[in-house]
């Protein structure tokens, strides 16, 4: 079964439809599927719900899909870095469902593992608990959160082999594995597709069973907050 495709548009062909739920990997601008986002922009698909920890910045990452008004709803934990996002949200054009970051990650992981719901202490007694079932375990209250079952996952990894085994790099791993797991179909983009057998099987971060289509390409990898220290301080 061929998993490697020539471009984002080819890899996304036949997978996109209006109103679909897409799970996207990345934290801030770190480890985001830049090329697949561009491919979705080009496709013109609309009314998307996107589960992603953040919403990019103006003109980059998921910010591109906000600029084109292709996103109807975001499921995120933090969206502070995007003026166009705030404009659309405050004017009522864009729906927003806040999820605590760990709850969002676990909802993706759970969906990918066939778990429709789980109980967590996170958010008990806060607005996040409103309308959710509360259950007591060992004398403590927990709220019911639902697994996310996405129509499509888009993720970014460092290296892959042609069977879709993925290796991530440093903190660019973040939401990519759980996002990849929760989609009916997962498309991954990587910096390098390496020959079969050259990845150490003991060092695969996400097995290829979760990855259905694969592209390789150049990434801008923009830095959101460049913080440095001076050499003389060392």
């Amino acid at each position: 079964m061929k998993k490697v495709y020539g471009s984002a548009s080819e890899a996304l062909d036949g997978l996109l439809f209006d109103g679909m739920l897409i799970a996207a990997g990345g934290f801030g601008l770190c480890g985001i599927p830049e090329l697949l986002i561009d491919g979705i922009v080009e496709s013109g698909v609309k009314d998307l719900t996107v589960a992603s920890n953040n919403a990019g910045v103006d003109g980059f990452g998921l910010g591109k899909l906000l600029d084109t008004r292709q996103i109807r709803k975001m499921m995120s934990s933090y969206v502070g870095e995007n003026a166009e996002f705030m404009r659309q949200y405050l004017s009522g054009e864009l729906e927003l469902e806040f999820n605590p970051q760990g709850t969002l990650a676990e909802r993706m992981r759970a969906g990918g593992c066939g778990i429709p719901g789980f109980y967590t202490k996170t958010g008990v007694g806060t607005v996040i608990a409103e309308g959710k079932e509360v259950k007591s375990f060992r004398g403590e209250d927990y709220i019911l959160e639902e697994g996310i079952f996405a129509d499509l996952s888009i993720v970014k990894a460092w290296k892959a082999d042609e069977t879709g085994n993925l290796v991530f790099r440093k903190t660019a791993r973040n939401f990519n594995p759980p996002a990849a797991m929760c989609g009916k179909v997962c498309v991954a983009e990587v910096e390098e597709i390496v020959p079969l057998g050259s990845l150490d099987p003991d060092k695969i971060h996400l097995p290829g069973i979760y990855v259905h289509r694969l592209i390789q390409g150049e990434h801008e990898k923009r830095i959101e907050q460049r913080t440095v220290r001076k050499r003389e301080e060392a």
Binding site: F27, G28, L29, C30, G31, E81, W158, R169, K170, T171, A172, K221, R222, I223, E224, Q225, R226, T227, V228, R229, K230, R231, A234
Partner: peptide
Amino acid sequence: FEGEEDPDLINAGKQT
């Protein structure tokens, strides 16, 4: 150090 920033290595505040 300046010049050694890695876009794949950030903290929860998105700082390198």
